[in-house]
Simulated assay, not measured.
Amino acid sequence: MRTTIRRGLAAVATAGVMTIALAACSSGAGTTDTGSSGPKTIAFVSASMGVNYWQWVSEGVKNRAGELGMKFVSYDSNNDQAKQLTNVKTAISAGASAIVLAPVSSASAAPVLALAKEKNIPVSFAAIGPTQDQKNYVSAVTADNEATGVAQGKFICDAAKKRGSNKVGMLSIPQDRENAQKYLAGAEQSFASDGCDLVQVIQSKILTLGEAVGLANDLLTAHPDITGIYAMYDEAGTASAQVLSERGLTDKVAIAATDGSPTTVKLVRGGKIQALFLQEALGQGYDATSQLGKALDNQPTSQAIALKQPMLTPGNIDTSALQDALKRIYPASAGAY
């Protein structure tokens, strides 16, 4: 297998599906939700509130905090590790009782956890966990990344072969995140067993649609013979569909994407994305906050929670199970399911 990583660009439902009360997302740094009441405050510190995914995680945190009678505040780290640590210091100084962290990178969580331990502030992770050597946290609510990597890899390998070759390209989230490493490990395992060639992995830096369009064009220009794209994040799936359409390649190159949004769900409905492996943005924020609520009440908690990622396809999108699963991905206010 020939895999190249371009460093210059480095950047489901669970067994019981729950309906989450919807509320507007607070995304400004240090913006307090004055509608909640209670003596305790949950702070959400995100990698970047400019990405829809983190806005929906934030809403999950806010919803659960409200149910627990807690106040809510969110901070935007703008993909900056120094800003992330400053946000945590600010949150603690402002009286946060607990923190839900969606870190800029896995390694960047270390100083946050050290500070939180010093101040006796419990921390839970949403979507992105810390490095394996870090233990001083309540819970890491992530997706089942490696298993999904295997399943997504197998799907796109089979789809690529049906389109005439075994060559697949990948648009990846930054590989300094433990979830990205697990996705890639699972995909590589699948490609090795199923006989596909992962010709290039291009990492995102800021996870925006505009950046992803450029990366998809770069991938197809460098490797015009690929017949499958493994899109490790939602914007990469959207961008790949757009670029394939512009190049007249929609029927020649398959796409398997991760996450889920009104845009990618619509693309699945239209057959422009062949498979979407759903990641619970709302659910991760909700469950990470639930674990903090237990910790604050001195109840038992679960340190590792890996939520399954069901595969959404044009054939199963309207089944009740998948429609229920989508309600833990993004709020109905964001768009149709």
Rank of each mutant, 00 (worst) to 15 (best):
T32I: 15
T32M: 14
V57S: 05
N87Y: 08
G271H: 09
A192Q: 14
D176K: 05
K162F: 02
V243I: 14
L276N: 12
L220Y: 04
D218F: 08
V253K: 02
E280F: 05
Q242Y: 00
S27M: 07
A116S: 14
A23D: 14
K119Q: 15
Y230L: 13
I255W: 02
G16S: 14
G129A: 04
K40S: 10
K62N: 12
D158K: 13
D197V: 01
A336N: 14
L9E: 15
G8K: 10
Q323Y: 09
G164Q: 02
I329C: 08
A257Q: 08
V213G: 03
S261C: 04
T86W: 00
D225Q: 11
L278V: 01
K89G: 09
K308F: 05
L267S: 05
Q299L: 15
A281R: 03
V17Y: 02
A13S: 13
Y337K: 13
A180M: 05
Q152D: 13
P314G: 03
S245R: 11
K308T: 11
K205D: 13
P310D: 14
S106G: 02
A254Y: 01
T238D: 15
N179W: 07
D176S: 14
Y330C: 05
L278P: 06
V168R: 00
G164R: 03
P314C: 01
L68P: 05
E188K: 13
Q55L: 03
S48D: 15
D158Y: 08
T313Y: 06
E246W: 04
Y183L: 11
G60A: 09
R328S: 13
A29R: 13
N316S: 08
L312T: 03
A254V: 07
N87V: 00
C196W: 01
K294R: 10
Q284I: 04
K161T: 07
V268E: 06
S108C: 03
Q132M: 04
S77F: 08
A109L: 09
I317Q: 05
V201N: 11
I329A: 04
A304Q: 12
A222T: 02
C25N: 10
A159F: 01
